[in-house]
Amino acid sequence: MPKILRIIILTIVSLTFAASAAVCDEFTKDDLKQWNAQFMSSVKEGEKLFHSSLGRNTVSCDMCHPNAANTHPETYPKFQKQLGKVITLGDMINWCIINPLEGDKLDLDDPKMIALEAYITYERRGVKLAPGKH
């Protein structure tokens, strides 16, 4: 490798290190505000999805779970006797999409699934974790 090129690479690497050090140093109130805004926009999107027909029969989640009540996100993962195994909140959301809503399940990393989880969990904020509880 020509010397000049090696110097350039080294310079880039050291510049990157310098930059990342600054990023990780600390975060500001503005950062917090921005991250919270990002999260709340997912909550809002989830609220919209939760109140819309995600399946094929016009039924929506809020019809049976006003304010996402009785979704108990704090109890997951937990054993579901009908499925015979320990499942996540996302699995249970999918179960309700397939059954009462007569729809197709979402991938667990689908932004829509994440938004639904964000909304459901946000409506349950402040409640103690109780994994496995029935």
Binding site: C64, P66, A69, P100
Partner: peptide, 11 residues
């Protein structure tokens, strides 16, 4: 369908 009791809404 059944509805939750309002006691189950934490907010």
């Amino acid at each position: 369908w059944p509805w939750p009791y309002p006691v189950s809404y934490a907010q």
